[in-house]
C-alpha cells in the first residue's frame, strides 16, 4: 500500500522533472525576454540534475547544481547585466532553417534506436559507490583531468584578457 503510494509519487516526480527539462529548454529558446530565457535555462539545468540523480549519481547531480547553476548561470547573469540593451531580444523569423535541427535529430534518434534494438541492457539505474571517481581522476584519467584544469585557467585568463580589450576606463 505505502510502497505503491511511494512509487506513484516517485513517478509523478520524475514526470515533473521531465517536464521541467523540456519546458525549461523550450522557454529558454523561445522566450522574448532574455531574462525568461535565463530562468528557463536554470529550470532545465535543475531538471537535468534531477535526471542525473535518478540515474544513480547524486554526485553528478550536486556537481551539476554547483557548477552549472552556481557558476555558469551566475556568469551568464553577470553577462546579462553587463550587456543588457532593450529591443534586441526575441527570435528571428522562422524559415526553412528550422527544419535542420528537426531532421538532424530525428535521423540521429532513429539511428540510435536502431542500434539500441540489437543490444541488451546490461544494467539498470542503481546506486553505486562513486568514491572511486576520485581515484580514477588521479589515476587513469590524470592527463585529461590536468588538461581540464589547464583549460580552465587559460579560459579564465583569456576571458579576462578579451574583456579588457579596448577598455576605455
Amino acid at each position: 500500500m505505502f510502497a505503491s503510494f511511494v512509487h506513484t509519487v516517485y513517478t509523478l516526480a520524475f514526470a515533473t522533472i521531465l517536464l521541467l527539462v523540456v519546458g525549461g529548454a523550450l522557454l529558454a529558446v523561445t522566450a522574448r525576454n532574455l531574462i525568461h530565457c535565463f530562468f528557463g535555462l536554470v529550470g532545465a539545468l535543475l531538471g537535468v540534475a534531477g535526471l542525473y540523480y535518478n540515474l544513480g549519481s547524486p554526485l553528478l547531480a550536486v556537481m551539476q547544481v554547483m557548477i552549472y547553476i552556481g557558476a555558469v548561470c551566475v556568469a551568464i547573469a553577470f553577462g546579462l547585466t553587463l550587456t543588457r540593451k532593450q529591443g534586441e531580444e526575441g527570435m528571428r523569423p522562422l524559415d526553412i532553417k528550422a527544419a535542420i535541427p528537426v531532421v538532424l535529430v530525428v535521423a540521429m534518434l532513429s539511428a540510435t534506436l536502431k542500434s539500441l534494438a540489437g543490444r541488451e541492457i546490461v544494467a539498470s539505474a542503481r546506486k553505486i559507490d562513486e568514491s572511486r571517481i576520485g581515484w580514477m581522476l588521479l589515476g587513469d584519467y590524470l592527463l585529461p583531468f590536468e588538461l581540464i584544469s589547464i583549460l580552465l585557467t587559460v579560459a579564465v585568463i583569456g576571458a579576462v584578457t578579451i574583456a579588457l580589450i579596448n577598455r576605455r576606463i
Binding site: 557548477i67 557558476a71 555558469v72 556568469a75 551568464i76 553577470f78 553577462g79 553587463l82 550587456t83 581540464i148 583549460l151 580552465l152 587559460v154 579560459a155 579564465v156 583569456g158 576571458a159 579576462v160 584578457t161 578579451i162 574583456a163 579588457l164 580589450i165 579596448n166
Partner: peptide, 13 residues
C-alpha cells in the same frame, strides 16, 4: 564552464 567564461568575455568585449 570554461567555454561559458570565454564566451562571456567575448560578449562583454
Amino acid at each position: 564552464a570554461a567555454e561559458a567564461a570565454v564566451f562571456l568575455g567575448i560578449a562583454v568585449a
